[in-house]
Amino acid sequence: MLVVFIRTLVLYIIVIIAMRIMGKRQIGELQPFELAVAIMISELASVPMQNTGIPLVNGIIPILTMLAAQIFISFVALKSTKAREIICGRPSILISAGKINEQVFRNELYTLNDLLEQLRSKDIYDIADVEYAILETNGQLSVVPKAAKRNVTPEDLNLSVKYEAPAIDLIIDGQLITKNLKRTNLDKETLEMELNKIGINRIGDVFFASVDSDGKLFCQAKEKK
């Protein structure tokens, strides 16, 4: 039992490291060759987990080999546009200037029902509202609505808007994020004073706190047990 536990733990750590090295993409964003590598790595790891008669190294070496191959292919695709087209393919234009390209649908084995489903997921319920629809190499659909159907922006209304940066997390579950605090105009003493103003005596009592680009503090205390 202990041997199985240790083997499983070792393989789990190796798979996690391998997937981490492969990058931060979500499953839906993986290229076909990346998805194939991810599936094969999981299969290679499962065999030594289930069969203790197989030496652990026989499971580790194939995983490392697949990882090395994936890194090599990714590097080649990064350096060569032609290789990237061969490995990953090219985006396919399903709708161009409002016209549906039937031949592209046949080439990609893609149906109108598939298109309509993905359009609905983007809150577009009428195909007539689409100017361009592009099927990306990872299977995601990029859509450019017709000008009259796009959301109104401040630029359309000739309005000037102020710059907004993402809010900076300062406290998460009672833990002060010192490196983030240094990016703001606050110091620990000033932060504690601001917390005291809203009735929070300790940083450890804060569930979440952040500061926006205007210096406005958002804070929520932990629920009392």
Results as ranks from 00 to 15, higher is better:
1 M>D: 10
2 L>E: 05
4 V>N: 04
9 L>D: 04
15 V>A: 12
15 V>I: 15
16 I>A: 13
17 I>P: 03
17 I>Y: 00
25 R>F: 03
25 R>D: 00
26 Q>L: 10
28 G>E: 06
28 G>W: 06
29 E>Q: 12
30 L>A: 07
34 E>I: 00
36 A>L: 14
36 A>I: 12
38 A>R: 10
38 A>S: 13
39 I>Q: 01
45 A>D: 05
46 S>A: 15
47 V>S: 13
48 P>C: 11
49 M>P: 03
50 Q>G: 11
52 T>Q: 11
53 G>C: 05
55 P>C: 09
57 V>D: 09
57 V>K: 14
57 V>F: 11
58 N>E: 15
58 N>M: 12
58 N>H: 15
58 N>T: 08
59 G>A: 07
59 G>H: 05
60 I>K: 09
61 I>P: 06
64 L>Q: 09
66 M>N: 06
68 A>I: 03
69 A>S: 11
71 I>P: 00
72 F>G: 05
74 S>C: 01
75 F>C: 10
78 L>T: 05
79 K>Q: 07
79 K>N: 09
80 S>D: 13
88 C>Q: 13
92 S>D: 10
95 I>R: 09
98 G>V: 07
98 G>C: 04
99 K>A: 12
100 I>P: 06
102 E>Q: 14
103 Q>I: 13
106 R>D: 08
106 R>L: 13
108 E>G: 09
108 E>R: 13
110 Y>E: 08
112 L>F: 09
114 D>K: 10
116 L>F: 11
119 L>S: 06
121 S>F: 07
124 I>A: 15
126 D>E: 15
128 A>S: 15
129 D>G: 03
129 D>C: 02
133 A>H: 04
134 I>H: 09
137 T>Y: 00
137 T>Q: 01
138 N>P: 06
139 G>N: 01
139 G>F: 00
146 K>I: 12
147 A>S: 14
148 A>P: 02
152 V>E: 12
158 N>Q: 15
158 N>F: 15
159 L>R: 15
159 L>S: 13
162 K>E: 08
164 E>G: 01
167 A>P: 12
169 D>Y: 02
169 D>I: 12
170 L>A: 08
174 G>E: 11
174 G>H: 13
174 G>A: 10
178 T>Y: 09
179 K>R: 13
180 N>K: 02
182 K>S: 12
183 R>I: 00
189 E>D: 14
189 E>W: 02
191 L>R: 09
191 L>K: 11
193 M>A: 10
195 L>H: 02
197 K>S: 00
198 I>L: 01
200 I>Y: 03
201 N>I: 08
208 F>Y: 13
208 F>R: 00
210 S>T: 11
210 S>F: 06
210 S>W: 07
213 S>H: 14
215 G>V: 07
216 K>D: 12
216 K>T: 15
219 C>N: 10
220 Q>H: 12
221 A>L: 00
